[in-house]
Nucleic acid binder design. Structure first.
Length: 476
RNA sequence: CGGGGCGUGGCGCAGCCAGGUUAGCGCACCACGUUUGGGACGUGGGGGUCGUCGGUUCGAAUCCGACCGCCCCGACCA
């Protein structure tokens, strides 16, 4: 029987229990690696579809670059090599023979894509160039956690090239908006858009932008990143072009990524003690139909009605009929609630006789979430209810986010704030003050939000004048 | 990689301290029957070299050592 530790008892255990019981993933025989089971992978496929659609609308095309990167490529960009060296997986033997040059299993693809871009770009007329790839990457992390941090993970990485700094900067912010739109509209998760501090930015970036989401325990999860790489990689890989004045210029590049960690974000942002709650837009099964019967005669009538419902909803709704005979309706109710299916339709003999069905919302367990609707017009009622669930999940997450967002004015208040959620505080910008907070509280500087309050303040640590607020939080 | 905890059928655990016949329990699984509007019940079954390797002993799940893995708290990170 499904056994899920209550969140208040042990949040980490709750997270792991949900993943196991909902059959999202299982541990692989290699440390730090997971198997994406079909139900978990289906969530990722829906995330992929939602993100891919947006990238294509922004002018991106998909391509695929190799898994293996020559070791020397990683070393060409100074900060990139120091940032990624500790976590590289390196292949030194191929076909039984020691390789002349070791191959890195990509931790990210700026280098190999930069190498190719250098060959493809000659003129300003070749710009802008926007390419995205869906792939796996490997980072040899010390400490792993299913979905949130695994040795191998799946993601999309988009890489673009522009003629000017301004265009690259604009792109970094545009794609950040793209991710934000996905998070809000599809994942139903509110996020803080911001800029990473120097200490937290991507290795090799001029500037990194992030969206930070709040999990159910108040901790932050960096949910997507968008980097303005400046000319760092174009200089390292000689990505140059002739401008309209026939002058040779180094290009300006950007990169952007969103990973399978997003599956973990969905689990932790919406789940409750009964298990998963999936936003309808990302749910592999949006509607589960549970038939109820006693006699064989009732069974055939009820199942016939289920098939009518399938014909009405099937073309537009991801739905299944759970006609298994070995489980009782009550068991199925709990099972599908654990798996986070947003809407359940119950159909029994009474409903068949009345030409009606019962709709039960996952996000409102028990009687309050149930209502009887006529078969006539069922498709519209289901669409409306799914939309309402999608909207309500976002509102609930937003209310939680706000309730756990604090504006401490003293260092002691900051300590208390980061124990509960996000702390917005004035920060002078110095790495020392940032490091002190991390050392004292384990909370890190998540970002400098793009939307800043008016006025100025004094640094929460050193009391020097500060022109910007930063968000501090404990993070995954 | 440091600190703490834990490895016993698929899941959750007991047994270990005080070594001794066929290693138990709940759930899950298989068969049959009765059930089915919020996790049904009966009867009968199947499944474990007790994380791995080595040591002590007449005898090891139990004692000793090493290693491996997992979880939690840190340092590192999407």
């Amino acid at each position: 029987m499904a056994r899920i530790t209550p969140r208040h008892e042990d949040y980490s255990q709750w997270y792991l229990d949900v993943i196991r019981e909902a059959e999202l993933a299982d541990y692989a025989p290699v440390r730090g690696c997971i198997v994406f089971r079909p139900y978990g992978y289906a969530i990722w496929e829906n995330i992929q579809a939602a993100v891919d659609r947006r990238f294509k609308a922004h002018g991106y095309r998909n391509a695929y670059f190799p898994l293996f990167i020559p070791y020397s490529f990683i070393q060409k960009e100074k900060e990139h090599v120091s940032g990624f060296s500790p976590e590289l997986a390196v292949v030194t033997i191929g076909g039984g023979e020691t390789l002349e040059e070791p191959l890195v299993v990509r931790p990210t693809s700026e280098t190999i894509i930069g190498y190719m871009y250098a060959q493809w770009i000659q003129s300003y007329r070749d710009l802008p160039l926007r390419i995205n790839q869906w792939c796996n990457v490997v980072r040899w992390e010390k400490r792993t956690r299913p979905f949130l941090r695994t040795l191998e993970f799946l993601w999309q990485e988009a890489h673009s090239v522009f003629a000017t700094y301004e265009e690259a900067e604009e792109e970094a912010l545009r794609v950040l908006d793209l991710y934000t739109d996905f998070a809000v509209e599809d994942a139903a998760i509110p996020v803080v858009q911001g800029r990473k501090s120097e200490a937290e930015k991507f290795a090799g970036a001029l500037r990194s932008y992030t969206i930070e989401a709040m999990m159910g325990d108040g901790r932050a999860l960096q949910s997507a990143t968008s980097h303005n790489l400046g000319q760092n990689f174009s200089r390292a890989f000689e990505i140059r072009f002739l401008d309209a004045q026939n002058q040779m210029q180094y290009a300006w590049t950007t990169s952007h990524g969103l990973s399978t960690r997003t599956v973990g974000a969905v689990i932790m942002a919406h789940g409750d003690d009964k298990g998963l709650i999936l936003p309808p837009r990302l749910a592999p099964i949006q509607v589960i139909v549970v038939p109820i019967w006693k006699s064989d005669e009732e069974r055939s009538r009820v199942l016939e009605t289920c098939e009518q419902v399938r014909r009405m909803l099937g073309p537009e709704i991801r739905m299944e009929v759970d006609a298994r005979e070995e489980y009782t309706p009550g068991w199925k109710f709990n099972e599908w609630e654990l798996r986070g299916v947003p809407l359940r339709i119950e159909i029994g003999p009474r409903d068949v006789a009345e030409r009606q069905v019962v709709l039960a919302r996952r996000d409102q367990p028990g009687a309050p979430g149930k209502r009887v609707v006529p078969m006539e017009g069922l498709l519209d009622a289901v669409h409306e209810t799914l939309s309402a669930i999608q909207a309500d999940l976002y509102q609930r997450a937003l209310a939680f986010h706000k309730a756990h967002t604090h504006y401490p004015e003293t260092y002691d208040q900051l300590r208390e704030a980061v124990a509960d959620g996000f702390a917005w505080a004035w920060w002078c910008g110095s790495p020392e003050c940032e490091a002190k907070i991390k050392a004292d509280t384990t909370a890190t500087n998540r970002c400098i939000p793009l939307e800043q309050p008016d006025g100025r303040g004094r640094c929460i640590v050193c009391n020097e004048p500060a022109s910007e607020m930063a968000v501090f939080a404990r993070a995954y």
